[in-house]
Structures are given as structure tokens and as C-alpha cells.
Design a binder for these strands. Structure first.
Lengths: 181, 181
DNA sequence: TGGTTCGCTCTACATTCGTTGAGTCTCAAC
DNA sequence: GTTGAGACTCAACGAATGTAGAGCGAACCA
């Protein structure tokens, strides 16, 4: 194995450990030393590779292949429900790290705000109404609340339910919010 | 003014400053020194009165008159929407402090979990169905997501909308989730 | 094979935090 | 008016954290 490969591999291991730790305890309680220990590496190396804790976090929450989903104006509700069903149960640590930290870490909050604003505008094009953006915001708020309650707070009834069950119950709600008529 | 009154008043001032600071920046970033400064008091006094930071937080999030609302089995949706409309725009710092910190502070998470579990059981009695608890959990998750998005993250379209607008848009969703038929 | 680069570690510093114990000052009781 | 209690402050400690710089050892290039 070449030197460059080994270096890249170590960096990826640190990034993975960081993602997991940020997702588990949030930005403030996750320490450089903790990340380094989880990655089997010296804390100074983390600094050397990422410069600062903020930068490490920024890299950690940056999901690799996050392509925007297509919007068919009428089937928006179904598409969103599909996305939620997919995400529930298999939410990636990057997103969880962002969710976990966005209430206490200003950078995380800002990142989420801009990402959400883009998503809201995107959804809103599928809801041709004067209050389209508000409806889209509610859709985002609802799915955010759902992920937080189930994956982070681990509320019992939600955690035990299957994604299909949840999505079925949520369908009327999403349809009424995304109704274009 | 007697000595006891003055003492009580100081304690209340500290508690108010703590509530506000916890609500603004969360448990980890709020410091005893910060609370003390906001209350115009020495940090040591905060310790003397509350013993530890954890205890201060516990006292800060303990809302004074939080009586459980009555549940008329059929009008559950309307009652919940009423509660949401009331809370939106005038959410107390104690609740915001709890929301802000519950993803990163284990004690806050535990407090929220038990409070929510009780609330879910309460709502579930108004939804006589096999999946009543799951439906109730979804209702809680939705209103939590709404409060977080609007009051803590301050997402624009949500913040600009009036409580009435929001409640109106949410009504079908709540009715479908709390439908007892 | 000798030198140099580079991945990586060791040690340490400065800051900030929660927390503590001694001390000060004011007010109430006798 | 003296005394004592209690509200409040001062100064400091120990631990943890982000961060910096020097140094080590092995892999690469000549």
C-alpha cells in the first residue's frame, strides 16, 4: 500500500469516527481527543489534518452524494413520503451529527438553515399556491421532528414502529399540505 | 424589604437569567459565569444557591403551572391545535431551554422523554385505536418539530407566518392522525 | 545506500470551566 | 450597641479542552 493511500485511509477513519461521535453526543460534548481515540490516532494528527474542530465538523456533516430529488408537481407528497421511508431506520451519521448539533452549534444551525431554505424553495415549486413556501416549510419541519424524535431522542412508540407504518399514518397529512388544488 | 424577600428575589433573578441563557445557547454553552453576570451576581453565589450546574438547569426548565389539558375524545385535534396556537409566538424560556438542550444534554433528553411519554399516554386515551400511542407520538413529534423549526432555528417562512395560518394548515393533518373512527 | 520527505506522536501551553473555602459586609435580634 | 447569622464576594484550584511546535521513524527518491 502506497503512502498516499495510507494517508487517505487514516483521514477517512478519523472522519468516520468524528461523524459517529458528533452524531452520538453532539458538537460540544465530542472532543478532539475522543475522536482521535476512536480512530486509534494521536489528537495532534486530527488537528494537523483538519486544522480546527470546526473544520472537522464541517467535513463530517458534508454528506457525499446528496442529490436533489426530482419534483413531479402532483406526486410531491408521495415522493416525500418515499424519501422519509428510505431515511428512517437508515439515517446516515452525517445527517444525525447535523441534527444533533444544530440547536447548540451556531455553524451547524447556519448550515441547516441554508440547506433547508434551498429544500423549501425546491418543494415549493411543487405546490403552486401563494402559501407554497409555508406549506413546504411545514413539511420540512414535520420530517425533521420525526427524525429527531425517532433517531435522536428514541421515543419508544416511534422507534418500535416500522417506516411503512409511520409513512402510512403520515400520508393524509402530507397530501393535505402538498395539495396543489 | 425583609432579608428573606431579598434572598428569594435574587434567587428568582438568577433563575430567570439561567432560563434565558439556556434557551439561547443550550446547556453546554451556557456557563455559570454567564448566568451570574446576567443576574448581576458572583458566580459562587449561583453555586451556593443551586449546588451544581445540573441542578440549576433542572430548576430552570421546571415550568411552574403546567397542568395537563383535558381530553374530550373527539375534539382532540382541535384541542391540540389550540394548544399549539397558544404556544407559538409565546413559548416560555423554560420550554425553549429544554428543547435547545435535549439533543446534547443527557439529563434534558431524559426529562423530555419521560414528560413526552406521559403526554403520549394522555393523548392516546383520546384515540381509541390499536395504534393510538403511535399516532399520539406522531402528533407530539410534529408539534415538537414545529416549535424547534420556528422558535429555535427561526426558519423564515415559519417565523413570518401567524400562529393562525400555521394552525389552519395543520388542521387536516391533526384530524387525520387523531381520527378515532 | 544515504538523504529527505512525510505520516505520525510526544509534550506542553493557554484558556475556560465547574467548583470550593475563606473572607466581607450588612442587617436583624437581644 | 454588641453580637451573630446570613447574603454575598474574592481568590484560587483542578480538570478538561483546543491547539502549537518539536521530534521520531519509516517510506520514498537519488
Amino acid at each position: 500500500m502506497t503512502r498516499q493511500e495510507r494517508r487517505r485511509q487514516t483521514e477517512e477513519r478519523i472522519l468516520g469516527a468524528a461523524r459517529a461521535l458528533f452524531a452520538e453526543v453532539g458538537y460540544e460534548r465530542a472532543t478532539i481527543r475522543g475522536v482521535a481515540a476512536a480512530a486509534g490516532v494521536d489528537p495532534a494528527l486530527v488537528m494537523q489534518y483538519f486544522g480546527a474542530k470546526d473544520e472537522l465538523f464541517r467535513r463530517a456533516i458534508h454528506a457525499p452524494g446528496e442529490q436533489p430529488l426530482e419534483i413531479a408537481p402532483e406526486r410531491l407528497a408521495d415522493l416525500l413520503l418515499e424519501a422519509i421511508r428510505f431515511k428512517l431506520g437508515e439515517t446516515d451519521d452525517g445527517s444525525l451529527a447535523l441534527f444533533r448539533s444544530m440547536l447548540t452549534h451556531p455553524d451547524a444551525a447556519e448550515h441547516f438553515r441554508t440547506a433547508t431554505a434551498r429544500q423549501v424553495r425546491e418543494f415549493a415549486t411543487g405546490i403552486p399556491r401563494p402559501d407554497g413556501e409555508l406549506r413546504a416549510s411545514l413539511l420540512v419541519a414535520i420530517s425533521m421532528g420525526l427524525t429527531i424524535a425517532r433517531e435522536l431522542l428514541r421515543l419508544e412508540p416511534l422507534q418500535e414502529a416500522t417506516p411503512e407504518q409511520i409513512v402510512d399514518l403520515l400520508r393524509p397529512a402530507f397530501q393535505s399540505l402538498s395539495a396543489s388544488g
